[in-house]
């Protein structure tokens, strides 16, 4: 399955929830905010959200800023 995460193509085998995917790609980041196909998915819904072929996933977090 091919998905696009932050503009980069990533390949995964087998069915995955958004939560599974986040555990794989950024296990240490505790302050993630996610969008799937331009819709915000709250962390409470990560487990219920299944990733599908071609999904565009945005993972953002807080950085320093003025």
């Amino acid at each position: 399955m091919e998905v696009i995460i932050n503009g980069k193509i990533k390949l995964f085998k087998g069915e995955r929830t958004l939560k599974d995917l986040l555990c794989e790609v950024c296990p240490k980041n505790k302050h993630l905010i996610t969008e799937v196909n331009e819709t915000i998915v709250k962390s409470a819904d990560w487990e219920k959200t299944f990733i599908r072929e071609g999904d565009q996933i945005e993972l953002v977090t807080f950085v320093g800023g003025g």
Binding site: L32, I33, L59, V60, F62, V63
Partner: peptide, 29 residues
């Protein structure tokens, strides 16, 4: 104040929020 950015999934960086006391109000730009 803090900003929001895409994370670099190939590189782990410590999050800025780990260095901001919980007592302050966070203003995201």
């Amino acid at each position: 104040t803090v900003a929001l950015r895409r994370i670099d999934i190939d590189r782990h960086e410590e999050n800025i929020l780990e260095h901001i006391p919980r007592s302050v109000t966070l203003l995201t730009n």
